[in-house]
């Protein structure tokens, strides 16, 4: 794979700087030629630099919470051409509707926030809802719970699916839910069932957010939590909708940003 040198003229890049991870997508023409991921850490600019390596692109679009920071640090760097930014709402809308043109609603559950975007049949953003102040209803909730049940996060979904009883977790708050789980454990409840209850609690929250946003038609589930099979299963069950999960659910934002970069490059060349 050569993403350097003379190919820069036709290459574009999209980068999604989230609060927990950074994703990069590079395209040449219509084809994705490179994708990579790194944790955000306390040095997002340094991490971006490492992730970019010697990538060259004629246009770059940044998205995610770190987008402004990225533009400041990387605009007008010789290898990168012009760097602009869009919000993750537009980036996810572009990315998800490119992967699934029939998509009408996008759900993204990330590490620190979650959002629902509804799209017109033409793929235009109609409305969006965001949960960005509270950890319950985000990937953080699952992370804390997996830790407290001592199950590796990657296995947490499968672990929960082996539960046999659905125990309701009533607390809306991550801190209280954790103590609720502790008291369930103290009463001798199986860890698998508690895990299932925890997944149910977060997905019910997500479901009411979907309803508030007026979810309709095929639903794309993106963001890191879409890798969790239990979350996907419960989402299907609760919404009764067709749930489409991208192969790389956490790349949807970077892909959307890259697609916009490509469009901007086309406009530049016109």
């Amino acid at each position: 794979m050569d993403i350097r040198g003379e190919m820069a003229g036709t290459s574009t890049a999209g980068i999604d700087i989230g609060s927990r991870s950074i994703e990069l997508v590079v395209m040449r023409g219509d084809e994705v030629v490179h994708a990579a991921k790194a944790p955000t850490t306390f040095d997002p600019v340094g991490q971006c630099r490492a992730l970019l390596g010697d990538v060259c692109a004629a246009r770059v679009v940044a998205t995610g919470y770190g987008r402004k920071l990225f533009v400041e640090a990387f605009d007008k760097q010789p290898a990168l051409g012009r760097v602009t930014d869009i919000t993750e709402i537009q980036a996810y809308a572009l990315g998800a509707s490119h992967l699934f043109p029939q998509a009408r609603t996008i759900l993204d559950i990330g590490g620190q926030d979650s959002k629902v975007i509804t799209l017109s049949p033409q793929g235009r953003v109609l409305r969006f809802e965001m949960n960005d102040r509270c950890a319950a209803g985000t990937g953080k909730f699952l992370e804390i719970m997996a830790l407290s049940l001592q199950v590796p996060l990657e296995d947490f979904g499968a672990f929960a699916m082996s539960g046999d009883t659905r125990i309701p977790i009533n607390s809306m708050c991550t801190v209280f839910a954790e103590s609720e789980a502790t008291s369930l454990m103290a009463r001798g409840e199986k860890a698998q069932n508690i895990a299932l209850g925890i997944h149910l609690a977060i997905m019910q929250r997500i479901h009411s957010m979907l309803r508030r946003a007026g979810q309709d038609g095929p639903l794309v589930f993106a963001g890191g939590v879409a890798r969790n099979p239990c979350a996907v299963e419960l989402l299907r069950e609760l919404t009764g909708a067709q749930c489409l999960v991208p192969q790389d659910p956490d790349l949807a934002g970077a892909l959307g940003a890259c697609l916009l970069a490509r469009k901007l490059l086309e406009n530049d060349n016109d």
């Binding site: 919000t87 993750e88 709402i89 953003v125 965001m130 960005d132």
Partner: peptide
Amino acid sequence: EQLRTRIEAFLEL
């Protein structure tokens, strides 16, 4: 920063 994202997305619309 969260509000900024929301507001910018709203204005993008």
